[in-house]
Simulated assay, not measured.
Amino acid sequence: MRRETELDAVRGIAALIVMFFHFWLIIPDEWKSHAYITHMAGISITPEILFHFTPLRLLVSGSGAVGLFFVLSGYVLSLSVARQRMASYGRFVIRRIFRIYLPFVVVILFSASLLPLVKTAPLHGVSQWFANEPWSVYPTEQVIMGHLMMIGTVPLVSLDSPIWSLIIEMRVSLIFPILFILMEKYRSETLTGVVAAYFFSNIFLNRLGENPPTTFMHSILFTFEYLPLFVVGILFYQFREQIRGFYGSTWPVIRNIALPLAVLLLGTPTIGPENAVGIMKNLIWIVCTIVGSCAVICIALHNEKISLYLQKSHMQGLGHISYSLYLSHMVVLLVMAYTLLHHMSLWEWGMLALPTCCVVAMVCFWLVESPCMKAGYWLTRRRYLKPGLVG
């Protein structure tokens, strides 16, 4: 099985969308609701309408991009587990720890060290969310340990708010080989269990109004609300040949119209399970995210023109730094906001912040992420005896 590098580029695009989403959240609410374009066909058009109810929604669909991340992880990890069937569970987990957790630790400690130095005055001219939520808790020893232990409750993601999804990714990684085997041997029973766990956690947490969770046990339940997305990735792997054949033999109208329209479902104008918006809305979100994510993967792998474009060097470069970009961009935005927003406009700051986030992500990749991955592979490499020593 070849490494499907197209999906690396897809992951990079999803990381960019998450960053754009946080840029969107930083903009003050009154700016979003101001009618810059008025009375077009009798309708007052605002940025909020454009980025909420049109295809532009995809550019700032953070929850859809995170859902795509989870489906991609299910598919790519299935490739990895299938390729290394004789590898031990411990080997798989060690590599995931070095791949996800160690860069996570570095960025959290970096954020905790910068907060007392940089946050010297309140932010003005930004949204209430950005002024009050990120860096809302002083990094005491207890707070830092809560982040490093991946507790996942509301105050213990404040040092780097996107880490709530990385906590879910790490937890699912710990059970993924078992989940993969269960899906191979007892697919129907496993799917039934996953769906039951989803509905139980969804109903329970929404009744409490606790999405995002406020206790560790509720945080564990919160993980089950995203488990179906990983399972869909496994299913896509298991039926990959059938999907490839279907794509090649299906009508052009499906390939050229239906699948691109399905991608738009990732921008469904609602909120994912990370906010308590209701059981039915969460269900609609996860169904739309599943369909949209599968359409993205199918197009990336089987549309020849798009596949070739995703394999170009600049797209592969974006894919390589995708995790570092996702992990570090909020810390960069916070540092730049507290140091520069008192001296320049929000728009000037935004034009500077975007390339800065990408540059920092590249530095983070080369100095942190890549060495961690190499260390994980070195630690779990297979050792062979020299032929002269055998016997």
Score class of each variant (00 low, 15 high):
385 L>H: 13
365 F>P: 04
203 I>N: 09
194 V>Q: 04
258 A>G: 07
386 K>M: 14
212 P>D: 00
97 I>F: 15
31 W>D: 07
52 H>E: 14
76 V>S: 02
218 H>Q: 13
361 A>E: 00
133 E>F: 15
234 I>V: 13
268 T>K: 14
46 T>F: 10
138 Y>W: 14
232 V>D: 00
291 V>N: 08
264 L>N: 02
177 P>S: 08
34 H>D: 08
376 G>Q: 11
253 V>W: 15
12 G>A: 04
261 L>E: 03
155 P>C: 07
130 F>N: 05
225 E>T: 12
12 G>L: 02
391 G>M: 13
283 L>N: 07
207 R>C: 14
386 K>C: 11
62 G>S: 06
67 G>H: 10
339 T>I: 11
320 H>L: 14
54 T>N: 02
160 D>F: 11
128 Q>A: 12
95 R>F: 09
149 M>I: 11
39 H>L: 11
141 E>K: 15
117 L>K: 10
309 Y>W: 15
304 E>Y: 13
235 L>T: 01
161 S>L: 15
189 E>H: 13
277 V>R: 15
194 V>E: 02
278 G>P: 01
10 V>W: 00
81 V>L: 02
337 A>S: 14
136 S>G: 09
205 L>C: 01
355 P>N: 08
265 L>Y: 01
326 Y>M: 05
233 G>C: 06
172 V>H: 02
182 L>F: 11
148 L>V: 01
1 M>I: 13
120 T>P: 05
230 F>H: 05
299 I>E: 03
346 L>I: 08
8 D>Q: 04
150 M>E: 04
382 R>T: 12
73 S>I: 01
71 V>K: 08
90 G>V: 11
202 N>G: 11
75 Y>K: 00
335 V>E: 05
45 I>G: 04
201 S>T: 04
196 A>I: 12
299 I>R: 07
206 N>G: 05
88 S>K: 10
297 I>N: 01
123 L>I: 02
196 A>Y: 12
13 I>N: 01
96 R>I: 03
120 T>A: 12
11 R>Y: 01
306 I>R: 05
59 L>H: 01
223 T>M: 09
383 R>C: 13
138 Y>Q: 12
372 C>R: 04
234 I>K: 11
260 P>L: 07
316 Q>T: 12
276 A>K: 11
7 L>S: 02
277 V>F: 12
125 G>F: 06
126 V>I: 05
15 A>F: 01
89 Y>Q: 08
113 S>C: 15
172 V>M: 05
343 H>S: 15
92 F>K: 08
63 S>M: 09
232 V>K: 03
191 L>M: 08
91 R>V: 14
275 N>M: 15
384 Y>I: 15
251 W>D: 14
130 F>T: 03
333 L>S: 07
236 F>L: 12
16 L>I: 06
145 M>N: 06
34 H>T: 12
61 S>A: 09
322 S>W: 02
317 G>V: 05
62 G>Y: 05
108 I>G: 04
296 V>E: 00
141 E>L: 15
369 E>K: 06
162 P>A: 03
87 A>S: 13
27 I>P: 01
319 G>F: 02
68 L>S: 00
117 L>M: 10
162 P>L: 03
357 C>S: 10
239 F>A: 13
24 W>K: 07
52 H>W: 14
69 F>S: 00
174 L>G: 06
129 W>C: 07
55 P>G: 10
16 L>F: 06
369 E>Y: 04
24 W>P: 01
